[in-house]
């Protein structure tokens, strides 16, 4: 979607990398916002106002993407030419096969009105939350590793973690939806 037209790292004036200090990023963002926000250009000619609008929207898009570790990693993968399509996240990670099978059974029961599956689902929710936290740690470690010595191999590992994470996240929201029907 972003098709590499705007380089978010360039917008924020920081080197390409994955392990970013959020405090420093925020400070940089605030500084640039003070300079680029359309509010600062209200008394200027139309062309300058339009430019401020373009630049501050790019700045906001960049900050929104880079401050979030998952979005940041996806973005960098895109920049490096990795395919980060949706379909990959639909494949069940092999190590989760058994758990997903059991979970689906429980979800079916619950949706069918059988409330006895509730404790099992609540337990699953906790298990998956823990898995999410683990993959976040895994990502953080890979980020450090990548910044020290960038390689496609690490990026591939990151992509695999992201896919697995996305898969788990979808499961969690399924469970949440079933436990608290809207």
């Amino acid at each position: 979607m972003t098709s590499g037209v705007t380089d978010y790292y360039a917008v924020l004036g920081i080197p390409r990398g994955l392990n970013l200090s959020l405090d420093a990023l925020q400070q940089r963002y605030y500084e640039l916002s003070r300079q680029l926000h359309p509010d600062r250009f209200m008394q200027k000619p139309e062309a300058e106002r339009q430019r401020a609008l373009d630049m501050s929207s790019a700045l906001n898009d960049a900050y929104r993407t880079l401050k979030d570790p998952v979005k940041r990693a996806q973005y960098l993968l895109g920049l490096e030419g990795f395919d980060i399509g949706e379909q990959r996240s639909k494949d069940v990670p092999p190590e989760l096969l058994e758990e997903v099978f059991e979970l689906n059974m429980a979800l079916e029961e619950m949706r069918g009105g059988d409330d006895s599956a509730r404790p099992q689902l609540e337990q699953a929710e906790k298990t998956f939350a823990k898995m999410l936290a683990e993959s976040d740690q895994e990502l953080a470690a890979l980020f450090v590793k990548y910044d020290a010595a960038p390689s496609r191999e690490i990026l591939t590992q990151i992509r695999n973690v992201l896919n697995r994470r996305k898969y788990i996240q979808n499961l969690v929201s399924e469970v949440e939806k079933t436990l608290i029907p809207t």
Binding site: M1, S57, N60, D61, R64
Partner: peptide, 11 residues
């Protein structure tokens, strides 16, 4: 909750 101005492109 995206900060504005905000943009997106789509092909």
């Amino acid at each position: 909750n995206s900060t504005i101005p905000a943009s997106a492109t789509e092909n």
